[in-house]
Design a protein around this nucleic acid. Sequence first.
DNA 1: ATAAGTGTTGCGCA
DNA 2: CTGCGCAACACTTA
Length: 271
Amino acid sequence: MPELPEITCRAREMSQELVGRTVTAIEVLQPKCLNVPPEEFIESLTGGQVEDVTHHGKWIFVETTKGYLLLNMGMGGEILLVTRKTLPKKRRLVFDLDDGACLSINFWWFGYAHYTPPGAIETHAMTARQGPSALDVTTEELKAMLDGRRGRIKSFLLDQSKIAGIGNAYVHDILFLARLHPLRTINTMSDAEIDALAAAIKDGLQPSVEAGGAFYEVNLYGERGGFTAENLLVGYREGKACPVCGTTIEKLKTGSTASFVCPRCQPLMPN
DNA sequence: ATAAGTGTTGCGCA
DNA sequence: CTGCGCAACACTTA
């Protein structure tokens, strides 16, 4: 689950490595992940020189002289800087570069590699729909976005059109830091709780960004991220003690996803 | 060994 | 429009 921390790190690494290099050939092993026919994808991007690599939410934007390569890693995968001799077996796309290196991309479920012509980035519906990137959201913006809304706070945080970048791995600790239950309805939240949530979004994501992303994902060189399972507060720690009060952490079904909460720190309704 | 569970996203429905 | 549940079908763990 590449979420904002992993995507931020990958984009930074790709920017350092790829800017100035030219794509000399492209191999598509899984056309399903493209938004255009494979021939068009290959012809459009081959010969392009990478000018910049940026990110927004869970999307990576590779800007080349021939247009954009837009990547969404779905539920996990690898972007590896390798050579033809060290290509991994599992790969869906390979970009050959002018110095003999290759960018090998794999995702194991639901990933996307989309093409958009130069200057037409706003025509790409899936990225155009994204809300502000999670680390850029201010308390005032969050208040405005939550005003009048009726659903559950966890669903809101996972909705990329509201805030981009939070997924079901980091949301557990964000809610814990804000002392909010995942099923808490938005219209019962106080201003103080929204303030706490705004801070928790940053506090829940920033440490992993600084550590190079989560341990279950690897960087361009195949190295695991430094944000480990021990760095999680309540996420995936059912049966263990809450780091604040010692109460046993519980795993809940919340809609179609699981949630991890401290039942004492995150009561469904405030006292 | 068979099956359930899983990090994402878009879509259809009430 | 909004919130919610499900399906897309790869791979790991029970």
